[in-house]
Amino acid sequence: MKRLVLGLVVLLGLYQAWGKLGPRNEVLAHVPGSPYLVVYGRDSCGYTGQMRTELARQGMAFSYRQVDNGAVADELHDKMHQLGLNTAYYELPVVEVNGHLLVRPELDRLLQVYRNSP
């Protein structure tokens, strides 16, 4: 019985290692030439509110998705898993910029990614 448990633990460890070390795309699928911004956050998060205000001040068009909605959280977590990002704990907002996911980005970094993405 101990060998069986030990074998299962080893297999689980190898499976998790493959998930972390296996191939990852650095960019989510999107249509080049059609820039977009999606802000994932919650209304009660000051950082999310600040990001939305700064983007509006810059005249940037963006979509806002509330992670308190289960379907939105699932969508975000799927995208994060594709890129090998931790979904157990992360800071808000998470901003999707032309296929890149940025976790609580500074505005300058976000704008740099937005302008330099194909």
Rank of each mutant, 00 (worst) to 15 (best):
N25Q: 13
N25W: 10
N25K: 14
N25F: 09
N25G: 10
E26Q: 15
V27G: 11
V27L: 15
L28Y: 00
A29D: 13
H30A: 04
H30M: 05
P32V: 00
P32W: 00
P32K: 00
P32C: 03
G33F: 01
G33Q: 05
G33L: 01
S34Q: 04
S34M: 03
S34P: 01
P35E: 03
P35K: 01
P35L: 01
P35M: 04
Y36G: 04
L37W: 01
L37Q: 00
L37S: 01
V39A: 01
V39P: 04
V39M: 01
Y40R: 02
Y40K: 05
Y40V: 02
Y40A: 02
G41N: 08
G41T: 05
G41A: 09
G41H: 06
R42N: 01
D43N: 12
S44P: 09
S44F: 14
C45S: 03
C45V: 00
C45I: 01
G46M: 07
G46W: 04
G46Y: 07
G46I: 04
Y47S: 07
T48L: 09
G49T: 09
G49W: 07
G49P: 06
Q50D: 15
Q50L: 15
M51G: 08
M51E: 05
M51H: 07
M51F: 11
R52C: 06
T53N: 08
T53M: 09
T53Q: 12
T53H: 11
E54V: 11
E54K: 13
L55K: 05
A56Y: 12
A56K: 15
A56D: 14
A56E: 15
G59Y: 14
G59K: 13
G59S: 12
M60W: 02
A61E: 12
F62Y: 04
S63V: 07
S63Y: 09
S63W: 08
S63D: 13
Y64P: 01
Y64L: 00
R65L: 14
R65P: 09
Q66E: 14
Q66W: 08
Q66P: 10
Q66T: 09
V67D: 12
V67E: 11
N69C: 11
G70R: 15
G70M: 15
A71G: 06
V72C: 09
V72W: 08
V72K: 09
A73V: 04
A73H: 12
A73D: 14
D74V: 06
D74S: 08
D74H: 09
E75H: 12
E75L: 13
E75T: 10
L76R: 03
L76N: 02
L76I: 05
H77Q: 11
D78Y: 13
K79Q: 00
H81I: 14
H81W: 11
Q82Y: 11
L83D: 00
L83Q: 03
G84K: 02
G84P: 04
G84N: 05
L85H: 08
L85A: 06
L85D: 06
N86H: 13
T87C: 06
T87M: 05
T87L: 07
A88F: 08
Y89A: 08
Y89T: 10
Y89W: 07
Y90G: 11
E91D: 15
E91S: 15
L92A: 10
L92P: 11
P93S: 02
P93M: 03
V94G: 06
V95I: 12
V95R: 05
V95H: 07
V95T: 06
E96R: 00
V97T: 04
N98A: 03
N98G: 03
N98S: 06
